[in-house]
Computed example of a mutant assay.
Amino acid sequence: MTRLKIHAERHRVSRIGWLRAAVLGANDGLVSTASLVAGVAAANADRSAVLIAGMAGLAAGAMSMAAGEYVSVSSQSDTEQADLARERAELADDREAEIEELAGIYVQRGVEPQLARKVALQLMETDALSAHARDELGISEVSTARPVQAAMTSAATFAAGAALPLLVAGLAPEGMLLAWVVAFTLAGLAALGLLGAKAGGAPLARSAGRVLLWGALAMAVTAAIGRLFGTAVA
């Protein structure tokens, strides 16, 4: 009997479930909190007011991210479960039609019809539902929705990202708070972009550049609004 040699590989796509939520959470925490701090600081508020606003933004943002991710990914999970339930019923009602359907998928991918039917039969003997979930519905262990994981990852990474501008705001010298927050936030965004690109195998410069662009734009807009309203109130 021929023994197959197992070639172990690790692909970055296996990280997609948590990587998307982690990058989104950290980036959102850093940008939104830094922008909030920049806006309040530009309105000539004192350090304590800036820190209170920033901490409120951290707490609200982390909970909002967790709730949003949970609801969004739960909707995906509900759809997946409904499709699986329908597929399970179809397998019970007309197994032969499901064999032909699966074989047809393999034929469309370039497999010879006789071999395609043989493969379909063997896969369905092992786990018919998994075979149809993977090859007909596109649902696999790698891509399946995990609402709790996404929610917890988003909340934790949002808080981690938001902590940087708050820490800088607390340590910055008098009169330099806004400049320090902007400088450290841009550095943090660059590092975050590089980290996300490294983990996902994307081009480093492009990933860092786009987060820097949007982060700088967000801080500029909120600082301008803070300056405008701060001057008007004064």
Rank of each mutant, 00 (worst) to 15 (best):
M1E: 09
T2W: 13
A8N: 10
E9W: 04
E9K: 15
E9A: 13
R10G: 08
H11R: 14
R12G: 15
R12K: 11
S14Y: 13
W18K: 10
L19A: 04
L24G: 06
L24N: 09
N27F: 01
D28C: 07
L30H: 02
V31M: 05
V31G: 00
V31I: 14
G39E: 00
V40W: 08
V40K: 07
A41D: 03
A49R: 14
V50C: 11
L51E: 03
L51I: 07
A56M: 07
A56K: 12
A56W: 11
L58P: 04
A62W: 05
M63G: 15
G68V: 08
E69T: 08
S74Q: 15
Q76M: 09
D78N: 04
D78Q: 15
E80P: 08
Q81H: 11
Q81A: 15
A82E: 14
D83Q: 13
L84E: 06
A85G: 06
E87D: 06
E90N: 15
D94Y: 06
E96I: 06
A97D: 01
E100N: 10
Y106A: 01
Q108M: 12
G110K: 02
V111Q: 02
P113T: 03
L115C: 03
L115H: 12
V119N: 01
L121R: 15
L123P: 02
M124D: 03
E125Y: 06
L129F: 00
L129Q: 10
S130W: 05
A131I: 00
D135R: 00
E141L: 12
E141T: 04
S143T: 08
P147A: 09
V148A: 15
A151I: 14
M152I: 15
T153A: 04
S154W: 06
S154N: 10
A156Q: 01
A156W: 06
T157R: 10
A160D: 07
A162F: 07
A163L: 11
L164C: 05
L164I: 04
P165T: 03
L167K: 01
V168P: 01
V168A: 05
P173V: 05
E174Q: 13
E174N: 12
E174T: 12
G175S: 01
A179R: 07
V182W: 00
A183R: 01
T185N: 02
L186P: 02
L189W: 04
L192Q: 03
A202M: 06
S207N: 08
S207Q: 07
G209C: 10
R210G: 04
L213E: 02
W214K: 02
A216L: 13
L217E: 03
A224K: 06
G226L: 12
R227G: 15
F229I: 08
G230T: 08
